[in-house]
Design a protein around this nucleic acid. Structure first.
Length: 422
RNA sequence: GGAGAAAUGGCAGAGUGGUCGAAUGCGGCAGUCUUGAAAACUGUUGAGGGUCACACCUCCGGGGGUUCGAAUCCCUCUUUCUCCGCCA
């Protein structure tokens, strides 16, 4: 969430920049400022009341010690009213602070200046494109047909065991999944990221920390009995490592990577565009997460982009990079670049990675701070990106690498798969 | 699952009703010494709110209570450790 002090000091600018999200935030921003003023006023009143009763208590202590019990008892009566006052003020203050917080939770991050205007994914800006789109033989198939033809992914079996959106990978399909995970992790660790194995269920506090709660509660699977959530992305456990942390400046930058399955309810998405691997309830992803000094976060962002580019280049997949427009950039993000791979047999682009800089938006919620050179505490910047999400990369490989007599395996993956053709 | 113990600053660890935001050690920062570094010595060093700056307020796992006054007493929840049981 945004910092109140930042909103207060940059009121007009915040409103103007939020307009890029097609959001008129002026009312909310003004409410924040008013609520904050009221909150501080109550706080001062409460503080003064408490100060008075603290000093009386001290006096009472001294009087008792010097044997003046009668005088002490007179003072005791004075504190009764103060106690009532401070209780009432405390309740008002809590209510005010809660109202302020609830409002702050609803205000999205301020987009970076480079974010283009726009309403939907159609307004995203293509900033880079690379790789040759292969000419496929006649009768080239979309990946769900290929999966059946070569018996490497069984969607119906997943339906039987669990339900739609939980595919079963078999034989070379399963091995290819494992190969991709290992390959991605190796690339990430070679780039300096520390590998983590993270929990696949998280508690409520973690859900709030990265902002899935309270808003996107319906998108996560919830384990009611223990009040835990299945992670929709490794970002959640990975970033919550740093919840309530006060780092030293020397600790930065931090880069971690981890493979996890991801679970998404995807309530409300149906139709032809979700066929096959295009949209699943459970899928695999290797994530990269960075904690950065604010001065360095955009440089780090570029570094992450280059890193993902390098992987796609090695896989020899045709891809493009989009700078998301104000209408499409996610709630917590200031700047997001999406990577899309061209799926030749479907004749469409598939999103395979999304790299974002959240600046201090997540860190403010997480209370992730560092002590700067002057000894002051300051919020860190957080960033994350997929490196990479498996299913659509797999779709891209199957479709782009298909030949009349089998699917070739990208060269860099052969050491991981142990075979060069499906 | 049963029995017991515990949760304190960046970390370790004292503190059982007022003089405690909290001893001590480590770590961090600054300085002295040194060609430089290390060691040693000296000083400094929790977080949040509030203020131009002070003052002041809050915080000793979370929540509630007793009391004029709570890190300290009571209730409750959570977590950790030890022993027993079960077990990949």
């Amino acid at each position: 969430m945004l910092q109140v002090a930042f909103i207060r000091e940059n009121r007009a600018d915040v409103i103007k920049r939020l307009e890029k999200r097609n959001l008129d935030a002026s009312q909310m921003i003004d409410d924040v400022i008013t609520l904050d003023e009221e909150r501080r006023e109550l706080q001062t009143k409460l503080d003064n009341t408490l100060a008075e009763s603290n000093s009386i208590s001290k006096e009472i202590g001294n009087l008792f010690k010097s044997g003046k019990a009668a005088e002490a008892n007179v003072l005791k009566e004075k504190t009764t009213q103060l106690k009532e006052d401070s209780k009432a003020l405390g309740e008002q203050l809590n209510a005010k602070a809660e109202a302020l917080n609830n409002l702050l939770y609803k205000i999205p991050n301020v987009p970076h200046e480079s974010v283009p205007n726009g309403n939907s994914d159609e307004d995203n800006e293509e900033i880079f494109i690379e790789g040759d789109i292969p000419k496929l033989h006649d009768g080239a198939l979309p990946h769900w047909e290929l999966a059946k033809k070569y018996d490497i992914i069984d969607f119906e079996l997943g339906n039987k065991i669990t339900g739609a959106g939980f595919p079963v990978y078999k034989g070379k399909g399963a091995r290819l999944q494992r190969a991709l995970i290992a390959y991605f992790l190796d690339k990430n660790t070679a780039a300096g990221y520390t590998e983590y194995q993270l929990p696949h269920l998280v508690n409520e506090a973690s859900g709030f920390g990265t902002g899935q709660l309270p808003d996107k509660e319906g998108q996560m699977y919830h384990v009611g009995e223990d009040n835990l959530y299945l992670i929709p992305t490794a970002e959640v456990p990975g970033t919550n490592i740093f919840r309530d942390e006060l780092l030293s400046e020397n600790d930065l930058p931090i880069g971690i990577t981890g493979y996890t399955p991801c679970f998404r309810r995807e309530a409300g998405s149906y139709g032809a565009h979700v066929r096959g691997l295009n949209r699943l309830h459970q899928f695999d992803k290797v994530e990269i997460i960075r904690v950065e000094h604010p001065d360095n976060s955009y440089k780090a962002f570029e570094g992450m982009i280059d890193h993902v580019k390098n992987i796609l280049k090695e896989l020899k997949l045709p891809y493009r990079i989009l700078r998301l427009c104000g209408g499409d950039v996610t709630f917590a993000s200031a700047l997001t670049y999406d990577f899309e791979v061209f799926s030749t047999a479907q004749d469409r682009w598939l999103e395979i990675s999304s790299v974002s800089n959240f600046e201090t938006f997540q860190a403010n919620r997480l209370k992730l701070r560092f002590k700067n050179k002057d000894g002051k505490t300051q919020l860190c910047h957080t960033l994350n990106g997929s490196s990479l999400a498996l299913p659509r990369v797999l779709a891209g490989i199957l479709e782009n690498y298909q030949t009349k007599d089998g699917i070739k395996i990208p060269e860099v993956l052969i050491p991981y798969t142990g075979f060069d053709k499906i």
